[in-house]
Design a binder for these strands. Structure first.
Lengths: 222, 222
DNA sequence: CGTGATTAGAAACATTTGTTTGAATGTGGC
DNA sequence: GCCACATTCAAACAAATGTTTCTAATCACG
């Protein structure tokens, strides 16, 4: 019988699945420890608190991701020798890095769902943690996108990037439910990579869409 | 001094704000009742349970929305006399209905955040409730979109609609945080209607994007 | 007024939560 | 063997949760 992974890994493996399925507040430490066949106190012993466990779950994905991502951007910049990197290559690179990291554990679904939760769940500590630890990678990416889309006003590019972030996170984090509907209605079993392929022309077209008509300022309350 | 609204309304008003800010599980009935200056037992008395309160919060938005939406689609269909309704008009109509309903209470932000939570938070009872109560409106809309985009394969249109749903819900439900960043970085205070105006060309371009390159592994199997 | 139904209120209920404790067990070095 | 250390474990902790109960107040109306 294959040797069980150690306690810390078992906790992380179980926690990320339960968090992804039910959210942070809805997942108790007893849920995690019982399913992981680990003593309840082990979480506080190894991680210190539930908050720290949540951050550790994220770090296990984001640390290798940012490492790969920075390396890929380094390579991309070197290949273009200081010139402008085309938008499609930037998007392609980001997509590749996002796909590669969880591929090792076949847990892309979990990774995406966690990203979605990081945005949607309150968890102020999580937002702060992610921003402080991994904000630089995102800043670097947006700066490269800026160089690749000089015709876009800064604010417009900012919003469009977040529009597309919404597309990706929303779709991939709700993948299971959507996939069931799609399979049932269209008899087509889609994988994550099918979806990424479908997203590519959509994202590119969205980023290159014409500017909104009237940019005259209009007031609005509330 | 303006007369206080009755207990039921005070509970709903307070609950929707707290739910939108912190999520369902993170908002306790005591949070709600104390802020609403209402007795704790009032929630269970008037609504029956916390789950029922959550559903009531959604119903207060979705009931008038679906009513208006169906009426607007009726009017649109009548105006086109059985002909095809252009995609832009469909999107415009949906956007208008979404904007109109919460406008009465200046709570579009809350409405959008609630929609985002309905997707991201587990709350199986909520998904089921929304699907059963309001699924028909969405079905009707998607059917009209199908007629408006006959060149799109059904599966492709399904996914693109959800891509755009992600764009809208993700952006508008995380509006506060994003708005702060945008204001700080670009000195531009955006309102919800500014965002909708920015989204319009993006959504249209996304729906009209070219098909993904290789659809070679498309199987008919069931 | 008075009577009966409806609503408000304070207190208690049983669970569940994250966390801490202190003893038991295991592990590696000398 | 023996010691120091790290880890596991069962138990208990205080606090918070949704819900229920029962009494008091309020209202509608004959």
């Amino acid at each position: 019988m294959a040797q069980q992974p150690d306690t810390v890994t078992r906790i992380l493996d179980t926690a990320e699945v339960l968090f992804a399925e039910r959210g942070f507040a809805e997942t108790s430490l007893r849920n995690i420890t019982s399913k992981a066949k680990v003593n309840l106190a082990a979480v506080n012993y190894h991680f210190g608190s539930k908050k720290a466990l949540i951050q550790a779950v994220f770090a296990r994905y984001l640390d290798p991701f940012t490492f790969r991502f920075h390396a890929a951007l380094d390579e991309l910049e070197a290949r273009h020798e200081g010139g402008v990197i085309p938008l499609e290559e930037l998007l392609e690179t980001m997509a590749r890095c996002v796909l590669e990291v969880p591929a090792e554990r076949n847990s892309l679904k979990v990774f995406m769902r966690l990203l979605g939760l990081a945005y949607s769940q309150a968890q102020g500590h999580l937002r702060r943690y992610i921003q402080e630890e991994y904000g630089s990678a995102f800043s670097r990416f947006t700066e490269l996108v800026r160089l690749a889309t000089p015709e876009l006003p800064d604010a417009e590019r900012f919003w469009r990037l977040h529009f597309m972030l919404g597309t990706v996170i929303f779709t991939l984090s709700g993948l299971d439910a959507l996939r069931d509907i799609a399979e049932q209605d269209y008899g087509e079993r889609v994988g994550v990579r099918d979806l990424v392929r479908r997203m590519r022309p959509v994202v590119v077209a969205a980023m290159n869409a014409p500017l909104p008509e009237s940019l005259h300022t209009q007031q609005e309350a509330g």
